[in-house]
């Protein structure tokens, strides 16, 4: 369904249109929130509130707003309301523990590799600046344009572009080291 048609459906009170948006965007919204707050419960609360808001204020929705942009801007506001930047603690250890707990022998090595990557990613993301981290998450999970990212983060478009590119260059450099570490880890 086209964006306009979905907005229109929601405005008319069609709950299946709301479900459509939810199904299409949940995975990305959830992962984005999880990587910012590192709390599944907080992220779910924020998404819950976000969809109730869309429904509650559906008559005021304007179909000129891109759905993605609307969802990420609103979710971000909600996440930051409950999670101020300064309160955030880096918890890569927790993630690593979870990873190891899940890794029973029956799991494929490939799966293990994916988990390791995801845990390492979180670690690496946490060493980036908040802005760098957020622009990367918005680009990769939100698939937002630089213009949209810039508007949400209140920076200019060129800065958004630079933050993404520099963040990726950093990840690329460290990635090579991880693969070596991982091979070492898996070999043991």
């Amino acid at each position: 369904m086209e964006e306009k048609a979905i907005w229109e459906g929601i405005r008319k009170g069609d709950k299946s249109a709301l479900k459509k948006i939810y199904d299409q965007f949940f995975s990305a919204l959830y992962t984005y929130g999880l990587k910012i707050t590192q709390s599944s419960a907080d992220t779910e609360d924020a998404i819950h509130e976000l969809f109730l808001d869309i429904w509650k204020y559906r008559e005021g929705l304007s179909d000129t707003t891109s759905i993605r942009f609307y969802l990420y801007r609103s979710l971000r506001r909600k996440l930051y309301k409950s999670h101020t930047l300064s309160e955030k603690i880096l918890r890569p250890d927790v993630l690593l523990d979870e990873v190891q707990e899940h890794s029973v022998e029956t799991k494929l090595v490939e799966e293990e590799e994916k988990r390791q990557l995801s845990a390492r990613l979180q670690e690496q993301l946490d060493t980036l600046s908040e802005r760098q981290k957020e622009t990367l998450l918005m680009r990769f999970y939100g698939e937002l344009s630089y213009k949209e990212i810039a508007e949400i983060m209140e920076i200019n478009e060129q800065s958004a572009r630079n933050l993404v590119t520099r963040g990726l260059e950093y990840l690329r450099k460290t990635m090579k080291t991880w693969f070596l570490l991982m091979i070492f880890y898996l070999a043991n």
């Binding site: 479900k19 939810y22 199904d23 949940f26 995975s27 990305a28 959830y30 992962t31 999880l34 599944s40 779910e44 998404i47 819950h48 899940h102 994916k114 988990r115 990557l117 995801s118 990613l121 990367l136 998450l137 990769f140 999970y141 990840l171 990635m175």
Partner: peptide, 17 residues
């Protein structure tokens, strides 16, 4: 590929809906 989804994302999608 670094920016993947957690494995349990589908379960969260269902329960939250």
């Amino acid at each position: 590929a670094l920016f993947g989804y957690p494995d349990d994302v589908a379960a969260h999608r269902a329960t939250l809906w």
